[in-house]
């Protein structure tokens, strides 16, 4: 028989995970609106793969199947993969990505709670290194026709008609290839993929994620530390460089509203398992990701740097945690809050 406390708050991992999924919905809705329903196919594909892989791994490791399968953590990973991969990526890309996340990044490290790296980001990094071109084919905004998209996922691929470089990609390519002549303003003005604030369409998706993030904050599933530190760092550093050399560096609004910034801020950086847990540690951790993201975006070879930034900071997380232990009750003299 169990011991005290005999009362437990009605909370469970499952309810946490389900609310995370719920919070993703506004962003997904905007996604579908601007880029078509292909992303839903990817989500379904990733979910099924993730659940099957999770079940197989649990069985192999002799864990209670229903208990862990029902926790919903595999679904969250699957959805994040589906949302960070191009929606018109061939089906096997998503499947391999999900398998890498669930089997390698999660279960080979000991399952939920023991994984040092964010599984979704492991999948993304792995795939973009292995299949850089497939991972950069994104649907053009406004081409929401379902049939060609479906074809792109499952059938022989005829992509030109429906793809377009993502804003980040377009900017990077332009700046890198045309070197001296291209300026940020010029590129942003010239291409159809740039909207008013960030990337066209993407800004609305980002707004959807932001909304979901607010919900998570309100539900106290995440704390303000990580999103704030991440977004602020990105804002400050991109702002500073844009002010210093507006020709070569995109401004903060562009950085915040394109790519995975919002999704990252509220859903990826905040993964509790692989991140920091102390309040101060969270600030350092997320700020580090913000900084690395910007560096990779501005100078790196890949269009978006969140995945690599997250993985790099995952390595540092335990160290940060260890050095940011909050003072214990009665030992706060240094901060002057007690006696």
């Amino acid at each position: 028989m169990h011991n005290s406390p005999y009362f437990l708050k009605p909370a469970s991992v499952r309810s946490v995970m389900l609310r995370v999924l719920l919070a993703l919905l506004p962003g997904i809705a905007a996604y579908v609106w601007f880029f078509g329903a292909a992303v839903l196919v990817q989500i379904a594909l990733a979910s099924v793969t993730a659940l099957l892989a999770e079940a197989a791994m649990l069985k192999l490791r002799g864990k209670p199947l229903m208990l862990y399968l029902g926790d919903g953590s595999a679904l969250v990973t699957a959805w994040l993969i589906a949302l960070t991969f191009p929606p018109i990526a061939p089906w096997w890309l998503t499947v391999i990505g999900v398998l890498a996340a669930i089997v390698v990044a999660k279960h080979l490290y000991g399952g939920l709670g023991q994984n040092p790296f964010n599984p979704a980001m492991v999948a993304f990094a792995l795939m973009i290194v292995a299949y850089p071109s497939l991972m950069s084919q994104w649907p053009a905004v406004g081409f929401t026709d379902f049939a060609p998209q479906l074809n792109a996922i499952f059938g022989p691929r005829q992509l030109d008609a429906i793809t377009m470089a993502t804003p980040l990609d377009a900017l990077r390519t332009a700046l890198h290839t045309e070197e001296a002549r291209a300026t940020v303003a010029g590129v942003l003005g010239s291409s159809a993929s740039f909207g008013n604030i960030g990337g066209k369409g993407w800004e609305w998706v980002a707004a959807g994620y932001f909304l979901g993030g607010l919900y998570l904050l309100q539900q106290r599933i995440i704390t303000w530390h990580m999103p704030a530190a991440f977004l602020l760092t990105l804002l400050v550093i991109s702002g500073a460089f844009a002010a210093f050399d507006p020709g070569h560096f995109a401004g903060p609004s562009f950085h915040l509203f394109t790519g995975g910034a919002m999704l990252g801020a509220f859903f990826i950086v905040t993964d509790p398992v692989s991140g920091c847990t102390t309040p101060r540690g969270k600030l350092f951790f997320a700020a580090g990701i913000g900084l690395l993201t910007w560096i990779i975006r501005a100078f790196g070879a890949y269009p978006d740097g969140i995945a690599f930034a997250v993985l790099l900071m995952n390595i540092a997380a335990p160290l940060i945690d260890m050095n940011t232990q909050p003072p214990v009750f009665g030992h706060k003299d240094k901060r002057g809050s007690a006696k």
Binding site: S12, V13, Y68, G111, G113, T223
Partner: peptide, 11 residues
């Protein structure tokens, strides 16, 4: 209590 699961370091 429902069976114990792994700690997810949710804090």
């Amino acid at each position: 209590p429902p069976p114990e699961m792994s700690c997810i370091r949710c804090g």
